[in-house]
Simulated assay, not measured.
Amino acid sequence: MGFPIGYTEVYLPRLLIYVLTVLGFIRKLISNIFRVVGLGDFLEPEFTPELTRTEMSSLNNQVRSASALLIREMLPVVKYSELVDPPESCAVCLYEFDAGDEIRRLTNCRHVFHRSCVDRWMDHDQKTCPLCRSPFISVELRDSFNERLWAGSGIGDYYDE
């Protein structure tokens, strides 16, 4: 006993795959012809071209930068000399603070960092303290933060009637 040399069952799935591939090419050809002629609006939403990978990444970057900008607005910037009981060094860059340094004191955990250090941290889509991982935005401010982020994204305009 052994395996038979030829399988007749293999031809049907191959044929199905070839037919589906040809139909996909025909769909793309028709949708491109409609767009060139100016009838692209008549296509159903499922036939509209999807966002490319670069468009998706730029859209994600815009949303990330919007949340980072909003967090920056909500976190206060003060001079190091104005603090009552300040730490000696920044936990991100490990440099000591100078009297004229601009710093951010996080509202949730009260940790202190150089402004540029924590801003760079936020630019990498981080929304928590680099030291203790508590969120930048406290629970009391989270609702207003989400509302402002939603309003700033422009997504709500699509759902308004």
Rank of each mutant, 00 (worst) to 15 (best):
M1Q: 14
M1V: 13
I5G: 03
I5L: 12
G6W: 11
Y7V: 09
Y7W: 09
T8S: 15
V10E: 14
V10Q: 13
Y11R: 12
L12R: 09
L12F: 03
L12H: 05
R14Q: 12
L15H: 07
L16G: 08
I17Y: 11
L20R: 15
L23C: 07
G24S: 00
F25R: 10
R27E: 12
R27G: 11
K28D: 11
K28V: 10
S31L: 08
N32I: 04
N32S: 08
N32T: 06
I33H: 05
V36E: 11
V36K: 15
D41K: 06
D41S: 01
E44G: 03
P45M: 04
P45A: 02
T48M: 11
P49R: 07
L51I: 05
E55Y: 01
M56Q: 11
M56F: 04
S57G: 01
S58T: 13
S58W: 13
S58P: 03
N60C: 05
N61Q: 11
Q62I: 09
V63S: 08
S65H: 07
S65E: 09
L69T: 13
R72M: 15
E73M: 13
E73Y: 10
E73D: 14
M74T: 00
M74R: 12
L75P: 05
P76Q: 15
V78T: 14
V78Q: 14
E82L: 13
V84G: 06
S89T: 06
S89Q: 06
C90R: 02
Y95C: 12
E96I: 05
E96S: 13
F97K: 01
A99Y: 03
A99C: 00
G100Y: 08
D101M: 02
T107S: 10
N108C: 01
N108R: 04
V112P: 00
R115E: 15
R115L: 07
R115K: 15
S116D: 05
S116Y: 00
C117D: 01
W121L: 06
M122L: 14
D123L: 08
D123Y: 04
H124S: 13
H124M: 12
D125L: 00
D125A: 04
T128R: 07
S134N: 13
F136I: 10
F136C: 09
I137T: 01
L141H: 12
S144F: 04
S144I: 10
F145G: 04
R148L: 05
L149E: 02
W150H: 09
W150T: 14
S153D: 06
G154L: 03
D157L: 01
D157M: 02
D157Y: 02
E161Y: 09
